[in-house]
Design a protein around this nucleic acid. Sequence first.
DNA 1: CCCCGACTGGGCAGTCTGTACAGCCAAAGA
DNA 2: TCTTTGGCTGTACAGACTGCCCAGTCGGGG
Lengths: 156, 156
Amino acid sequence: MGIDELDGRLIVLLAREPRIGVLEASRRLGVARGTVQARLDRLQSNGVIRGFGPQVDPAALGYPVTAFATLEIKQGQGADVRAHLNGVPEVLELHTTTGHGDMLCRLVARSNADLQRVIDRVVGFEGIVRASTAIVMENPVPLRVIPLVEQAAQEG
Amino acid sequence: MGIDELDGRLIVLLAREPRIGVLEASRRLGVARGTVQARLDRLQSNGVIRGFGPQVDPAALGYPVTAFATLEIKQGQGADVRAHLNGVPEVLELHTTTGHGDMLCRLVARSNADLQRVIDRVVGFEGIVRASTAIVMENPVPLRVIPLVEQAAQEG
DNA sequence: CCCCGACTGGGCAGTCTGTACAGCCAAAGA
DNA sequence: TCTTTGGCTGTACAGACTGCCCAGTCGGGG
């Protein structure tokens, strides 16, 4: 289940320059093309690489406001709340957590004013007892995996 | 800056089946290949599509534990804290937020025990006054953008 | 000592990409 | 109404890549 050092270099390379193909990658890594192909296949069937879907920027889509909402759920309403939130497009992800809140979700909105509408829609559901929202001002570290991959590659 | 309806269908298609190329996409969408190519180029230069990097699953990498930490920062230490957290591979993303905490970051760890090590490393830095952590138990809605894209496509 | 898995280097057919060009059409402007 | 502009359609061509196959090499485990 670990990650090879070559695997690591491959993933990092693909992350930095996604457009290069298997052939070019093999040249950069200094291995045969078949090797890269085999590694890639294995990484994908392993589940290490889920896919190569487009990374969409909500801000460029017209949703420049991001927020995190901590939700407190009425006992036994978990499934319903999940289904409800799943139906809200502005809910980009949802986690159930330990701690004071029961759920944490990431929201986007067209503006601060629009965020109110989104929150109303999110919490306008019996089963959600309380919600506290934190608006994101800055994003010093955007979602990244490369450092983790490098670490996993060295240790593995 | 809006999103066309065709743009929306294209993005959704690519998100669902990333391996298909421009040609196949044009067939599916019922438009000419050149059109798809032009749209793709525009979406990428727009910044709507950031890229097609590999989507790596930290769990498969050996980091099955995810947590969110809310950090309280000593006034004026923001920049240092950012730099510090930027150097921790297990910090997958970092936001500065409004509300009770000053920052919110996503962490991963090899196990619950290992999470302690990560948190120690994160908060072991002058400038961080307090941290409260919520461990993720379940992830009912994994990070997604498709519903948002569809909504933006209809409205735009 | 042998076997097995992994990597190498090469080859082949099929397909896709990048690019270009001419024609068509609808919307915007003169 | 005429003209211009921008976007889409088909088409074409050379170059490059992919998927697949195979024989040979190499190092570790049995």
